[in-house]
Each structure stands twice: as C-alpha cells, then as structure tokens.
C-alpha cells in the first residue's frame, strides 16, 4: 500500500515536470516574444515614470517648493525625455506590427486592426 502511494507520488511529479519536454516544438517562439515584450514593458515603465515626474513637478511648483526658473528648466527636460521614449515606443510598435500584421492597444493590450486610430476597448490612442 505504502509503496504504491510513494510510487504514484514520484511518478506524478516526473510526469508533470517532464511533459513539456516531450514536444519542444510547441514553445519555439516563447523566448523571442519575451524579449520584445520585456523591452516594450520597460519603455512603458519609462513613460509612466516621466509622466509621474512631470505631474510631481507641476505639483511641487504649485505648492511653492520650486522657483519658476527651475520649474521651467526641469519641465523642458522631462518633456524632451518623454518625447524620446514615445518615439521609441512607436518604433517598437511599428516593428511588431510589421512582424505580426496586427497591433495591440498600448494600454489594455486588446487587439486592434491596423487602420484603427483609437482602441475600441478603452479609447486610448493607438
């Protein structure tokens, strides 16, 4: 009795872990897709960070912690950085679009056709 339980447990573990190794072809594109999506995520994070910095800056100016000159200088710098990131995101999207012939909404990742200007799900600009 005991030996069966043990065998069953060991066998189950081996089966569950070994199963994906039986048919490797199914997972071919996983790694390449991962690389693109990581870069995309990184860019989106960069964009969020800059926007947050902009909001913070505006707020700090409003609560009187920054001089006008400093505010304007920093504001201009963040704007340039934001523009740069947005351009990189656009380039990456164009690249994946060419590769796959379709696009995802940058915010909610819903599928969108190539001709769409706005996402049908959340209304974000594509």
């Amino acid at each position: 009795m005991e030996i069966f339980v043990i065998l069953a447990l060991v066998l189950a573990v081996i089966l569950i872990i070994g199963y994906p190794l039986v048919n490797p072809a199914r997972y071919r594109d996983l790694i390449e897709r991962g690389r693109t999506s990581a870069r995309y995520n990184d860019l989106c994070d960069a964009r969020e960070n800059i926007f947050e910095a902009l909001r913070d800056l505006q707020f700090e100016y409003a609560t009187g912690k920054l001089s006008t000159a400093d505010y304007q200088q920093l504001d201009a710098r963040y704007q340039t950085q934001a523009a740069d990131v947005l351009r990189q995101i656009d380039a990456l999207q164009a690249q994946t679009q060419n590769a796959r012939g379709r696009r995802d909404c940058p915010r909610c990742h819903a599928a969108a056709s190539a001709s769409d200007k706005f996402c049908a799900q959340c209304g974000a600009k594509i």
């Binding site: 569950i16 994906p20 199914r26």
Partner: peptide, 15 residues
C-alpha cells in the same frame, strides 16, 4: 534557448 524547459520549470514550481 530551450523554451520547453522553461515550461517545465513552470510546472516544477507548481509541483
């Protein structure tokens, strides 16, 4: 670059 092992890892974590 063997993604099938990655899937196996995923199963292993659950195990």
């Amino acid at each position: 670059q063997r993604p099938e092992f990655l899937v196996s890892v995923k199963h292993g974590v659950w195990v």
